[in-house]
């Protein structure tokens, strides 16, 4: 038991170290980029060319292969920001603050992708690009939280104050996540309830579900890749003048 706890603590301390993260991420990047790209290709080609068309919507339903994965990672990234905010506020782990700074623009991008792909789907199926129902509005609020985090961070000169402020904001915004998730069940909305169910049979046929799950997996891998890249950039920005960074750059030349 003590051994396990010890190795967790060791991993945690390593995770907080910039040099360790920088070297491990350079090893992880090529393989994860390759995996993300191949799985994305598999999912999207299967979804667009080899899955059957829907009985009521025809071909337009295929936007699901972008929309659902984008919306899923958009919410998960925010959840991870809230956890990082908690870690930063309690343990003052610098890496957690850096994580929020690096991930917020990625989360914002996927939220925009979810909103835009949803609007493009909504126009022909619902008859409108946008409606102020609970699901759409709460997702817009998610985007606003991401933008607020980005804006708040850049409004401070001092990195420490900035990290602290965005940590608080990231945690406050997390209350929006269950609202997004349950909005379609709690209120009358135009948006349909989720088709992928965990505890009962999904209401999407398995021929459409499998490529969708692959697309979702590939989006998470993509976020992992983008996240590593963004964090490396941020580490480079903060540590440019430090000895370990100069040494490493020299070694790689």
């Amino acid at each position: 038991m003590n051994k396990i706890l010890g190795s967790i603590t060791l991993f945690y301390h390593k995770l907080g170290s910039y040099p360790w993260f920088y070297s491990i991420s350079s090893k992880l990047l090529p393989i994860s980029t390759f995996l993300a790209f191949m799985i994305f290709l598999l999912g999207i080609v299967w979804g667009i060319f080899y899955s059957p068309s829907d009985v009521t919507q025809g071909e337009i339903y295929r936007i699901i292969y972008m929309h659902v994965p984008a919306a899923s990672v958009a919410q998960s990234i925010y959840f991870s920001l809230a956890i990082a905010g908690f870690v930063y506020l309690v343990w003052k782990m610098k890496m957690a603050g850096l994580f929020i700074k690096a991930m917020a623009p990625i989360g914002a991008s996927f939220t925009i992708l979810a909103l835009v792909s949803g609007a493009i789907w909504g126009q022909p199926t619902w008859g409108t690009w946008w409606v102020w129902d609970a699901r759409l509005t709460s997702t817009l609020v998610l985007l606003l939280f991401y933008l607020a985090i980005i804006g708040l961070y850049s409004s401070f000169d001092n990195k420490k104050t900035a990290d602290q402020a965005v940590s608080i904001l990231a945690m406050v915004g997390a209350v929006n996540l269950p609202i997004i998730k349950k909005s379609v069940d709690w209120w009358n909305t135009l948006h349909q309830p989720s088709s992928i169910r965990i505890f009962e049979e999904s209401t999407i046929s398995s021929e459409m579900l499998y490529p969708l799950l692959i697309c979702i997996l590939s989006f998470y891998l993509m976020v992992f890749v983008f996240g590593l890249m963004a964090m490396r950039t941020e580490i480079a920005k903060r540590e440019m003048t430090k000895d370990w960074f100069k040494k490493m750059v020299k070694k790689n030349d």
């Binding site: 059957p52 829907d54 199926t125 619902w126 135009l190 349909q192 989720s194 999407i204």
Partner: peptide, 12 residues
């Protein structure tokens, strides 16, 4: 008039 789509996705 807006149409509401339900959560069912069924192949043709």
């Amino acid at each position: 008039i807006l149409a509401k789509h339900d959560e069912n996705y069924v192949p043709k």
